[in-house]
Amino acid sequence: MEQVIVNGFYLGAQYALIALGLTLIFALMNVLNFAHGQMYVLGGFISYTIYGKLGLPFVVALISSGVTLAIVGALFERFLFRTVIKRSLREESTMLLAAATAFFLDAVILLLFGEKQRGVPKIVKGVYNDGNLIMPYDRMVVGILAIAFIAGFILYMKYSRPGRAMRALAQDRVAAQLMGVEVDRYTMIGFALGAMLAGIVGGLLVAITGINSGIGGPISIKAFLMVMIGGAGVVGGAIAGGFILGMLESVGLTVLREFGDVTYLVIFAALMVFLSIRPNGLMGKPWG
């Protein structure tokens, strides 16, 4: 049982980080970033290229993933979402644009990196085993790094100047403008930051699960699930949703194993029931 919880916690930390990026973009722009999973995949391939192929240190790979995705996010916001949001009168327009960016990134990734599953050498060798609990050291490192990133993100949102500006924008756009918050600037920073988080998780997890170009869509769907569980646009909700999904998956894979591959079927069914009772997820408020 401890094993299941530890696995769930490890998975939950990665998921929470993915959901945080998605929920940040949603809170600031009311845009559901369909390309979030593709951004994760791109981060994974960048990390694979730099660490796995070029043999540079893993840290360098991770930073490159984060920086590249931050730039991609900033460009997407500046040249695509900003223009569409300013010019369109219907919310569907940004939804379609978001879907288009996902397909676009899928195509780019396939072109650049091919369709093979890729893996990298272990970042740390060895396995922790006390007879009761088994945990490879590399998973521990990745799990701890994910938690450090979550903590860093929370502190940044709470205490930094851009963090306060973004929280203000998410809570009341007009009031934030009246305080002198430059909407365009901080929306771009927010989108870049959200994309960066997706890229960092991809860059981290390539060390454990490897990466392949087909998993962007499924990762996006998991990210949506987490945000729906926790409540859209809320930091606490994204974290709760991430850990809950990680735990459900871990427990499901153990408990439901004998019934075949039904874990996600059960999760989806449970989510539908849950959402019909609590349509706003666990925490229906924006940006605490």
Partner: peptide, 21 residues
């Protein structure tokens, strides 16, 4: 602004500091 528009999930302190942004 009309209708007050505080930042509802920020503390009084953080609301005031936003004023000095």
């Amino acid at each position: 602004p009309e209708g007050r528009r505080v930042f509802p999930y920020m503390t009084v302190r953080d609301n005031l500091l936003m004023g000095a942004f």
